[in-house]
Computed example of a mutant assay.
Amino acid sequence: MSDLLFEVHEHIGIITLNRPDSLNSFSQEMITQWIEALEQIKNNDSIYVGVVTGNGRAFCAGGDTKALRNGEGFMAKTAGEDDDFVDLPLNVKNGLWKHIQRIPLLMENIDKPMIAAINGPAIGAGLDMALMCDIRYASDRAKLGEGYVNAGIVPGDGGGYYLPRLVGVDKALELLWTGKILNADEAKAIGLVTHVIPDDQLMNEVLAFAKRLTNGPQEVIKMTKRIVYESRTMSLKQSLDLVSSFMAIAVHHPDHQEAVKAMNEKRKPQYN
């Protein structure tokens, strides 16, 4: 059985992590398939929204701790590498860069909405994968935390980048330094998740929201996401310059014409 499932339903690309017996911890196969699924979401024009969730009782427990205990994990070799030639520290760095770190880099370039449906524990790199999404729906039985410190390692998959942007530097450092695990309500209180949903209603709520987005003006939704993310590192003048460029495109797009017509006719717009 595949370590990751990917399906497209009504313009929604759904990624399901599929190692339930291992709490959906990463395998090399899962990472490879995850990258392939994200590339599909990014490049397939018939996919409007992406959703990431887990099979079973966990979202993702992060790296495979069994592999770490066996001296594997970050030490996995890449094609063509020679242990007699490659220094072990460099092997770790290149292993991250060539494999799991490709996921946040891909996510950064996906202008379509990405939603995490956190159906259970999201720990360490598993939490980081949820933080990469634009919106996080959490089951009321979810547990969330950055457990890297407990393994004596640093956050390797973007936790040090995403976490302080969501909860602030002080709370981020507290979570990273202590490995503290939060329940869903505690996570929502500090801005780590967007919504907390009863477990049996989680996917229905996520898919209903995703479906609502698929019915919107897709180019405007993508441009709006890009404005928000790019503006985090821009001056006001640069941001307004980007907005004016996107506005010039938007007002000449058929979706704008349909939206104005629908408002005048007092009906819901019908976008292609």
Rank of each mutant, 00 (worst) to 15 (best):
D3P: 02
L17M: 11
N18S: 15
N18R: 10
S25M: 14
S25P: 00
F26V: 03
S27H: 09
S27L: 10
I31D: 01
W34P: 04
A37G: 08
E39F: 02
N43T: 15
N44Q: 10
Y48L: 07
V49P: 07
N55P: 01
N55Q: 13
G63C: 08
D64A: 11
D64T: 07
A67D: 14
R69L: 13
F74I: 13
A76P: 00
A79K: 13
G80R: 10
D84H: 13
V86F: 11
L88I: 14
P89D: 12
P89F: 09
L106V: 04
E108K: 14
N109Y: 00
I115A: 03
I115W: 02
A116M: 06
A116D: 04
I118M: 12
I118V: 15
N119L: 03
N119C: 14
A122W: 04
I123T: 07
G126T: 12
D128L: 02
M129G: 15
L131C: 05
C133S: 15
D140K: 11
A142V: 06
A142I: 04
A142N: 08
K143E: 14
K143N: 04
E146M: 15
E146H: 08
Y148I: 01
V149K: 06
G152Q: 05
V154R: 05
P155E: 09
G156L: 02
G158T: 02
Y161E: 07
L163T: 00
L163F: 03
P164E: 04
L166P: 02
K171T: 11
K180V: 07
L182R: 05
N183S: 06
D185G: 03
I190N: 05
G191P: 01
F209M: 03
K211E: 05
L213A: 04
T214G: 02
V220A: 12
I221F: 05
I221D: 00
Y229W: 05
T233S: 10
L236V: 13
L236G: 00
Q238R: 12
Q238N: 12
V243Q: 12
S244N: 14
F246E: 11
A250I: 08
H253D: 15
P254V: 01
D255W: 01
E265P: 00
K266N: 13
P269T: 09
Q270W: 00
Y271L: 04
